[in-house]
């Protein structure tokens, strides 16, 4: 494995997202209970916990992807740069441009690689000219660490890439809209170990410009890429702190049981 610059986790960053007393309901099911969490800028925050603990659900509340599910209801407040994203005046469309998302399974659109990346900039009107757009596409693909692999076939379909390449394409696509926060929902669960390594390396680089939140079921991955870790269990946020502290010296017995493999 490579070395993660864990040392800078002591540096204090500004709070990007603050969640206060967040509750999520699916119909009658109380999926998230009273979660308070603060996510810092330019930091990778990992959400870990057993399946069905609500970590993905909570991630999706951060850019209001839950709005697309009819029966889902959110209470409490989530502040992005001090503004409540569940305020009536907030347009989820504008919010999602600021808070990008990468999904569990790579989901490139059935379009060319170029059009996949250009999709976001086009709908948000980020490019004035074709040259602007070309530049954005190249920059995003470079940032997605996939430029060298695809620069000669920008106009072939994105669905023709390998799984790992597809996922990096999706990350590049998310980056192209210039988000401030990047949410990743188990981005490596559908990838093989080599592709996983490449994506993890990419995440670490992305940290320099974005606040990254990653949901993962793999504790090793959380330990490798994140500076902060939140442990969810049965819809509760059990413990939140420095990754090194969570993994070496958990305060809550449930966290310890999970990390040592007794629940999960």
């Amino acid at each position: 494995m490579y070395d993660s610059p864990k040392s800078d986790s002591t540096v204090k960053h500004a709070i990007k997202i603050a969640a206060n007393k967040v509750q999520v309901f699916y119909g009658d099911t109380h999926a998230i209970k009273d979660v308070d969490v603060q996510i810092e800028d330019k930091t990778v925050t990992a959400f870990i916990g057993p399946s069905g603990c609500g970590k993905s659900t909570f991630l999706r509340t951060l850019n209001r992807m839950n709005d697309t599910i009819d029966i889902c209801r959110v209470e409490g407040e989530i502040l992005l740069d001090g503004e409540n994203i569940y305020d009536k005046r907030v347009d989820p469309v504008q919010l999602r441009a600021k808070v990008g998302m990468v999904f569990q399974k790579p989901n490139p659109f059935p379009k060319s690689i170029y059009d996949n990346i250009a999709y976001g900039p086009r709908i948000h009107g980020l490019a004035k000219t074709k040259a602007d757009l070309d530049e954005i596409v190249e920059k995003s693909l470079r940032r997605g660490a996939i430029w060298n692999e695809v620069k000669d076939r920008l106009h072939s379909p994105g669905t023709g890439l390998s799984g790992g390449q597809q996922q990096r394409l999706c990350i590049a696509r998310a980056v192209a809209t210039e988000p401030e926060v990047l949410l990743m929902d188990e981005p490596c669960s559908a990838l093989d170990p080599i592709a996983t390594g490449q994506v993890e390396e990419l995440i670490d680089e992305l940290r320099e410009s974005y606040s990254v939140v990653i949901v993962t079921h793999s504790m090793q991955q959380a330990a490798r890429v994140s500076q902060k870790t939140a442990f969810f269990h049965l819809g509760n946020l059990v413990e939140f702190g420095e990754t090194s502290q969570i993994f070496t010296n958990p305060k809550d017995p449930r966290t310890e049981s999970y990390i040592t493999g007794r629940i999960g």
Binding site: D87, D91, Q94, G125, L126, R142, W147, N148, S209
Partner: peptide, 28 residues
């Protein structure tokens, strides 16, 4: 990771500084 040479900087976010609470013209 030789690809990631383009350093994202402050110049990367022109239109995004606005508040979420008001819709910009394009969103409208």
């Amino acid at each position: 990771m030789t690809d990631a040479t383009v350093q994202p900087g402050a110049e990367g976010r022109p239109a995004k500084s606005g508040s979420l609470l008001e819709q910009d013209a394009r969103t409208k």
